[in-house]
Design a protein around this nucleic acid. Structure first.
Length: 593
RNA sequence: GCGCCCGUAGCUCAGCUGGAUAGAGUACUGCCCUCCGAAGGCAGGGGUCGCAGGUUCGAAUCCUGCCGGGCGCGCCA
């Protein structure tokens, strides 16, 4: 069991000291004094830690910020770990640590290893991240890929931040789309075995090649269907009547195959597509704790139970034969139908039941990762949760904006029309899993993503995945060279001599590494894996820059053993951080490239 | 019409929830291999942070109103 990272004891001690000093200065003022929190500076010229407390309290204290800061600093007892504390700019209090102190993080990284950056486990909130949840009517495409990469990275990030987290894929295996899928497969099958079958597929049917493949794998039990019976009394297939057209075919298919026969065909097609999705996502490094069937909600009475629960809260009414949910009472723009006059429940009814079910399973915070085109759906689902007595804040919905693929400086047209779209599988085979995972999350989720295929496969610093992985590999190569020179790295000697690290670029690298735990925490809170991606680039930059100091004056494998081990400790720590961060993003950390 | 997201360097984007001189990559210009990998590094030029008001010690960040772009507004799933 790896040692868990303890919080930074030096920083905490300094915060306590500062809080005491501020309290001391402002004792007679009638203002509440918050606990002082220190931040790592962005610019090393501003020292190691900084706080804006003097500016925030200046007004209440009736003192100019710089004067207040000076009074606070005067109250701080000397500390051997602190070189100096001064006032800068409009009133920042900057803390400069004593030489060597900023390298203390190296020992911690090497001791905790893979656990470095991981927060102590929290009990709550228990989080369920639901993502992808693409309709099982065809293969995953590049848009789904972004949701998959984002959701998987977010779940890993939340877990690293200490939260108990589960992942789930909601399988929309109920409703008319499954019936359309079934007849699409049936028609393809009949085309394969019966020449009199019409060659044109219904407009509303699924058109992709994968349907043909599934049809080919079908056993012969559906081959007895007479194509003429299938199309008997069916309205013409035009843009206006395509829905009626396919509905009539579905009805005919059901009477030809019987309820059970049709149902097993439907099941077969669904399973084939789901299996494909699982394999695809599995290869992409995306795994789910649970695949939740929408249909199961109908089967086990969950939908009726959820509707009853809403009814008990007096939020249902009947009108025009439909049963409506009073969503407007809870902030939605219009009321929503949950049960149609024909007795069928809407998709929304399933969703209310599903989210109720999630809460019943003990999850306190539900994170649904959705495509941005579904944003209008958020208020009603949230209203649904409220209607069942849950806080609206228990649902958090990060929206994933669209992806455009670029090649040779041009945007690749993507359309689902006619089943022609770029699949996730094609993308992965072109650029590899690592580049795909990284590129998908390197931009903020609410930013449209331009995915540059040429860049993703290029092996240069233009390519951020490559650049980061290369830093990891380069460090591995240093240690291979060390072994080739018949030398050994002695960690304890390295850690004992961190004071020998005097290069500006060494200090710079350490100051980036020390920010890793807070980067994890912040990125998790902001639901923003891209913050981690950007951070890792910073680590790589700091390392590559150090690496490129003129070897005449600077080498990792120095002849002087204490110095050599100190430097090796530093870069080994950097390698560990890169590895830990990449693992969260689902990207490999190769030893050589 | 209403709602959500976006608008920052020529291009693609960060900007840590209100802080210090707005940063990366790319492109452009010029440098650095007798070397642990130059698949890298260093330096330079390049900005009315869409526009106009407001809030305050302080605004790219918060509020209001405009202007652009994307998406969505079913008894579909």
């Amino acid at each position: 069991m790896p040692v868990r990272r303890r919080s930074d004891p030096l920083k905490e001690a300094l915060e306590k000291t500062l809080t005491a000093a501020v309290t001391d200065v402002l004792l007679d003022r009638e203002i509440t004094i918050p606990n002082v929190t220190l931040e790592h500076t962005r610019d090393p010229a501003h020292g190691d830690f900084t706080t804006n407390i003097a500016m925030r309290l200046a007004k209440g204290a009736g003192m100019p910020p710089r004067e207040l800061a000076a009074a606070v600093i005067a109250k701080i007892p000397p500390d051997p770990a602190v070189a100096k504390i001064d006032i800068a700019g409009p009133g920042f209090i900057n803390v400069y640590l004593a030489a060597g102190q900023s390298f203390a993080v190296i020992g911690e990284i090497l001791e905790t290893g893979e656990a470095f950056g991981r927060a102590a486990p929290k009990e709550s909130p228990r989080i369920l991240v639901e993502f992808v949840s693409a309709n099982p009517t065809g293969p995953m495409h590049v848009g789904h890929g972004r949701g998959a990469a984002f959701g998987a990275s977010l779940a890993a990030l939340l877990s690293a931040a200490g939260y108990p987290v589960s992942t789930e894929y909601y399988v929309n295996d109920a409703g008319r789309q499954m019936e359309i899928l079934a007849v699409s497969v049936l028609i393809r099958r009949l085309q394969q075995v019966k020449s009199e079958t019409p060659k044109a597929l219904p407009l509303a049917a699924y058109q992709g090649e994968y349907i043909v493949t599934i049809a080919e794998s079908l056993d012969t039990s559906y081959d007895g269907v007479d194509p003429r019976r299938l199309y008997e009394g069916v309205p013409a297939d035009t843009d206006d009547t395509k829905d009626a057209h396919i509905d009539a075919i579905i009805e005919n298919a059901q009477s030809e195959l019987g309820v059970l026969g049709f149902s097993s065909l439907r099941r077969y097609a669904l399973d084939a597509i789901l299996a494909d999705i699982r394999i695809d996502l599995g290869e992409f490094g995306v795994r789910f704790d649970k695949w939740f069937s929408e249909e199961s909600l109908t089967d086990d009475g969950s939908i009726d139970a959820a509707i009853e629960r809403v009814r008990e809260h007096n939020l249902l009414y009947e009108q025009d034969g439909h049963t409506w949910f009073r969503a407007t009472e809870l902030g939605d723009e219009k009321d929503r139908v949950v049960v149609r006059s024909n007795g069928k429940k809407t998709y929304f009814a399933s969703d209310i039941a599903y989210h109720h079910n999630k809460r019943e399973r003990g999850f306190d915070l539900l994170i649904d990762v959705w495509g941005a085109d579904h944003h209008g759906y958020i208020p009603r689902v949230r209203a649904g949760l409220q209607a069942m007595g849950y806080a609206p804040a228990s649902l958090d919905v990060p929206l994933i904006q669209f992806v455009s693929l670029w090649k040779d400086g041009e945007k690749i047209a993507m359309t689902t029309r006619g089943g022609q779209f770029v699949t996730l599988r094609e993308l992965r085979s072109q650029v590899g899993n690592d580049a795909a995972r990284f590129f998908y999350v390197m931009r903020s989720n609410d930013q449209h993503l331009d995915f540059d295929l040429d860049l993703a496969v290029s092996k240069s610093n233009e390519n951020p995945v490559f650049y980061i992985q290369y830093a990891h590999a380069r460090i591995a190569q240093v240690f291979e060279k060390l072994a080739a020179d018949s030398l050994t790295f002695y960690r304890s000697e390295g850690l004992a001599n961190l004071g020998l690290l005097t290069e500006e670029k060494e200090k710079n690298l350490a100051s980036v590494l020390v920010r890793y735990p807070e980067t994890i925490a912040r990125a998790a809170e902001a639901r923003a894996p891209h913050m981690l991606a950007n951070y890792l680039r910073d680590v790589a930059t700091a390392f590559h820059s150090l690496y490129n100091i003129d070897p005449k004056t600077y080498k990792f494998i120095d002849d002087d053993a204490p110095l050599r081990n100190a430097r090796l400790a530093l870069i080994l720590a950097a390698q560990q951080v890169v590895k830990n961060g990449l693992a969260i993003l689902g990207v490999s950390a190769p030893e050589r490239m």
